[in-house]
Design a protein around this nucleic acid. Structure first.
Lengths: 207, 207
DNA sequence: CGCGATTTCATACAAACGTTTGAAACGGAT
DNA sequence: ATCCGTTTCAAACGTTTGTATGAAATCGCG
């Protein structure tokens, strides 16, 4: 019972890293098993199919981030006044866990960000449904909180602006270390987070 | 000389459609040749490798959009006062051509949008370099125009906010017809364009 | 220890992949 | 009609893919 979890989680780690770096489709089960130094059959034994492995990696990556988002949101609402939490705080509750989860993986800061971004454009129907399942509750709660912070905005407007914010966040995570002109002052991560929050907050407050 | 262009462009059309729908990696040359009703070897004959075909599709899709963006930008600057074009106009010059190119393809409105979004997360180094080449001049010109419209903003800030806007645009294009809650009022395309422009403009104007 | 269940292993399989080949069909110019 | 360059074709190539198999190894437990 010891080495099972060892193999299983080693596969998950390596798969996450490789998927992040090269995309879900370009990585073969052989690439994973070789780098994880486990037998080729281990993936099918532990996860079933490659698709199931992908789902497991996504779930392990996305679930805690969205849980953290929901937790941050609840804490905000618990400590907020009768008018609910401030817009910037809500956006931070949404943005920071995604960024944080990257910093946590220590070894390679960009890994999670990249993987995070990848998921969104992988068109396999299974992945799509999984993502829908993982994000639906979050979208609902975020929508409620934002509606309270911006009562003049319609639910539809909030929905679209959430989508815009979402896109900004993920495109930033996916490409923030790429195509950087040399004249860009090397802003650290925290600074960029603040810039994004300010940008989205202003966008939400647009007339 | 007649049927050559016929075959070539039929391959390009089908490839664009299939890549958009299923992603660059999940579509095989056999899928393309079968749907285009051309011989299997036609792709290698006309384009070289599959990678070269991908590059050709991307170039055919992205180049005219970016050309239209640059043209719109130049026209704006020609007719603008001494303070340069308005922020909203600059953003519209950036956003609308991408949307327009989708509407143009008539048959399937979502096709281009999807393909557009796909390119960004396909990590092949060749694709990356091609995209860099295709976007670099646009990023430069946009940066200049925005710097004139927002003189108080640093070039770095403009760069990041352009990235955010870019992400919002492409994520919207990629997912606007997906995961739509039933309570979202069916806003038409033009309305959504205006929402995005307003959102980004406010974001750019943030303190 | 010895037994039953779990995990690892080397190997094999069929299918799908991108690409190549050489001959056949075609086009327009002479 | 003949010729030459271009384009199409059916067939095959060697890899690589995801998955399956059955035996060996390893484990916890009585």
């Amino acid at each position: 019972m010891k080495s099972r979890k060892d193999t299983r989680s080693r596969i998950l780690d390596v798969a996450e890293a490789l998927f992040s770096e090269h995309g879900l489709e370009r990585v073969s089960v052989r690439d994973i098993t070789k780098k994880a130094r486990v037998n080729l059959a281990a993936i099918n034994y532990h996860f079933g199919t490659k698709e199931d492995l992908i789902a497991a990696v996504i779930e392990r990556q996305v679930q805690p981030v969205n849980d953290a988002r929901l937790a941050a949101l609840e804490e905000l609402q618990a400590t907020a006044g009768k008018r609910g939490p401030k817009l910037e705080s809500i956006l931070e509750a949404f943005i920071r866990p995604a960024v944080q989860s990257c910093a946590d993986s220590a070894v390679e800061q960009t890994r999670c960000s990249k993987f995070f971004g990848r998921c969104l454009s992988e068109p396999s129907p299974e992945v799509e449904n999984l993502l829908k399942k993982l994000f639906e509750p979050l979208v609902d709660r975020m929508g409620e909180a934002l509606k309270r912070a911006l009562p003049r905005l319609s639910r539809t407007d909030i929905f679209w602006r959430m989508k815009f914010t979402y896109g900004a966040l993920h495109h930033w995570l996916l490409t923030k270390d790429k195509w950087l002109p040399d004249w860009v002052e090397d802003a650290d991560l925290e600074e960029q987070v603040q810039k994004l929050i300010a940008f989205a907050a202003a966008g939400f407050r647009a007339a």
